[in-house]
Simulated scan of single mutants.
Amino acid sequence: MTDTAAEPILSATILLLQDDPDLQVLMVKRHYQIDFAAGALVFPGGKANEEDGSDAWDDLADGDYSGAERVARIAAVREAYEESGIILARPKQARGEGAPVVGADMADTLDPFRAAVDRRDMSFVELIRDNDLVLALDTLVHFGHWITPSMMPKRFDTHFYLAPTPPQQLASHDGRETTDAVWLTPAEALDMAEAGKATIIFPTRMNLGKLDETPSVSDAVKRFSQESVVTVLPVVGKDKDGNPCLHIPAEAGYVQTIEPLEKIANVAKR
């Protein structure tokens, strides 16, 4: 009997950026009881849901996107809101690509509803509509696209986005899926992983390494807005010494193309 690979689930992850004064990215610590990347330091993100694909967003989102691309961007904005309290949105009466996004006052207004939206007890569409907002999907820069290897029992089709953090908005963890929220330079996060002070899974480490090549938010947005994204589907193989490893395509532009299997944590519960 031939095993069939699990179908990857559309997901989105967002790298919220700020300069303080060096480039920093927001990372959250996954709760130890979560069934994927438990206890790991990650970027806010998660699976797309049915409402992310609702036609109701036609009137409630800036940016010329459609299909899975729009669904993934909406999921990224929603997950950023649920897991960090950061909301990438504009007043509906002052909408338009490139227009200013809301600040701390609106983020504070929406903050009490984060848990309800996360639990699906409240509609994210209705929350945005009731507060006369539109999602600023155009502020997201497509940064990476990773698909979980076919041999894994749980697979994700994950789009990574960069976004400048709106001025004056403050990040805080949600206390349910995440237990901490910290701003780190990419180098600091990678050093923590190397020293064993943090668990950071392979795709996250690779995207931190890529982000570390830019010194500021403006440089990151400018560079990666102009670069194409190559899909990464790691495949199992061997290195030159015959040791089992994962291979990723060199054209994806990451700092390495091979990762020993012994370094891949089993982050998905079977």
Rank of each mutant, 00 (worst) to 15 (best):
I201R: 03
D55V: 06
L211R: 06
V232C: 06
V42E: 09
I128G: 04
N131P: 06
G209M: 10
D191Y: 07
K263M: 11
V141M: 04
D108E: 11
P215Y: 11
K210T: 08
G98W: 00
G53M: 05
G103Y: 00
M122L: 15
T257I: 02
L208C: 09
F143A: 05
F143G: 03
D55R: 09
G53P: 07
A195G: 14
Y161D: 02
P91G: 01
D118L: 14
L170R: 15
T204N: 05
R270I: 08
T148Y: 02
N131Y: 05
Q256Y: 03
R73A: 07
V217T: 10
N243E: 13
D138V: 00
E83L: 14
K210H: 09
H142R: 14
V141S: 05
V230G: 04
E188L: 06
G45K: 04
D180P: 12
V267E: 06
D58W: 00
R120M: 13
T185L: 14
L261M: 15
P149L: 03
G39I: 06
E259K: 03
M151Q: 13
K238D: 11
A181L: 08
L233E: 12
M27S: 10
D180Q: 14
F224W: 07
I200K: 04
D241P: 04
A75K: 09
F160I: 02
A89T: 01
I14A: 15
N49V: 13
A72K: 10
Q18I: 07
P215V: 10
R119P: 08
D174N: 15
D180K: 14
R176T: 13
Y161S: 08
L60I: 02
L135H: 03
E51A: 13
P166E: 01
P21A: 14
P244M: 02
E126G: 11
D157K: 03
Y65C: 02
K154W: 09
D219T: 07
